[in-house]
Amino acid sequence: MATKIFKHIQTSVVPLPIENIDTDQIIPARFLKATTRDGFGNNLFRDWRYDNEGNPKTDFVLNEPIYSGKILVAGKNFGCGSSREHAAWAIADYGFDAVVSSFFADIFKGNALNNGLLPVQVSEDFLAKLFAGVFADPNAVIEIDLVDQFIKIVATGETESFEVNPYKKACMTNGYDDIDYILSKKELIAEFEGR
């Protein structure tokens, strides 16, 4: 089944300089009751974004109109905790195409890649530069190129390369999906079961 294709983006970013953001913050459990993949963006970072009465908290970055863009930049160990893929769905549904951090939790990284949401792992130094850049100028533009595997702060030209599993890269740049790949090897599964 075809999935979303990702090759290259150039956009402003939304900064969230908090470490260890767990998937319970990205999407709290009480919003996991939907049985489809859509609409989770409304509850992205729900308890940081809204107060108990459902009013927007004005000091949370998603409620600050000066910040926008298709890249979320966050502190280290992003996406730890629960395996809920709803976290990746919520971030993508909200309108992000990529998340940049200095460290990602394993399961989140896999879930993001399976949903056309690119996790870009950068050095602590580069992350600090990204935060400094966007806090100095909220319109600062960042370029991410999956084909050539680099991230660039456009204003200064500072660039860093990032790692991505070659298979996953091929999936994302072509819109392939894991199930199609495994199904193409179905005779090997039958053979394995016969061993």
Partner: peptide, 22 residues
């Protein structure tokens, strides 16, 4: 180990999982 929903679908469809060795 724990997996996401896309992988749940993968295992349902194939009884297999694509995984890099940790």
């Amino acid at each position: 180990f724990g997996i996401g929903t896309s992988q749940v679908e993968q295992v349902m469809a194939t009884q297999c999982l694509l995984q890099s060795r940790p």
